[in-house]
């Protein structure tokens, strides 16, 4: 087991990109090696050591590497990008692109995350105890597939466009979401505990389950009657009929 503890040495006020914070990059490395990894703050190239304090215990491959991040990371982007294994625990808030393109391992956040968390994620697990921003598990600009696999759980709320262009995997938001969850979906499953608006527009495949109220319904779904999912009865819709979609939308 390798445990790496990271803390900001000073308050980070401007946008910082550190895709090198990942079990794959830290595994088997010493404190000095980790400190010398690249980080960008604004338009300046720096190292992890110049921004954060790093403490390393033990040495292990990525699967047995745990990164514990203490403090405020609300301007730090791309944490855990592309990670394939291991564990990242963040006791604080983080900025955009958390766990983007990750294919394995687990990230757990105590605070809130900004937009694009779990962007184009292929596998692994992302647990967010606070709220999520826009485009949770979505595809970045122009991409035809967002999330393809894995699981995202949000305890709080999420903003608009949850799981846009999703092609697989599962997103669970216990609270409310903004407008258009599951926009242009082509697979996967989205479960919303609270309220939302205009779910499933342009979806061709996939499942969306809404347990709260739907403020506004897109007039592109066909009501198929009632159906029980996991013991709860929902109104079942299929669509989006405009794109000849086979998507399933369950609304309580």
């Amino acid at each position: 087991m390798q445990i790496v503890t990271i803390k900001p040495t000073k308050e980070i006020k401007i946008s910082t990109e550190v895709e090198n914070i990942s079990p794959d990059k830290f595994a088997g490395k010493t404190e000095q090696e980790i400190k010398s990894l690249e980080a960008w703050i604004g338009n300046q190239k720096m190292t992890i050591g110049e921004l954060f304090s790093v403490k390393v215990e033990g040495s292990a491959p990525a699967a047995d590497t745990k990164i514990v991040m203490e403090g405020d990371f609300s301007r730090v982007k791309r944490i855990g990008e592309g990670m394939t294994a291991g564990l990242v625990i963040i006791n604080g808030n983080v900025d955009m692109h958390l766990g983007a393109k990750m294919s394995g391992g687990k990230i757990s956040v105590k605070g809130n995350v900004d937009s694009w968390a779990g962007r184009e994620m292929k596998g692994g697990e992302l647990i967010i105890e606070g709220n999520a921003g826009y485009y949770l598990g979505a595809g970045y600009r122009g991409e035809s597939c967002g999330m393809r696999g894995g699981k995202i759980t949000v305890m709080g709320n999420a903003l608009d466009f949850v799981g846009e262009h999703m092609c697989g995997g599962e997103i669970i938001v216990n609270g409310n979401t903004g407008i258009l969850p599951g926009l242009s979906n082509n697979g996967g499953k989205i479960v919303i505990g609270g309220n939302t608006s205009r779910p499933g527009s342009e979806m061709s495949k996939g499942t969306i389950i809404v347990n709260g109220t739907v403020d506004e319904m897109m007039p592109v779904f066909k009501l198929e009657g009632n159906e029980a999912v996991d013991g709860v009865t929902y109104k079942k819709y299929t669509g989006d009929v405009i794109v000849n979609g086979k998507g399933l939308l369950y609304i309580k």
Partner: peptide, 8 residues
Amino acid sequence: IMRPEDTR
């Protein structure tokens, strides 16, 4: 313009 993903 229509393929920002290609630019990546």
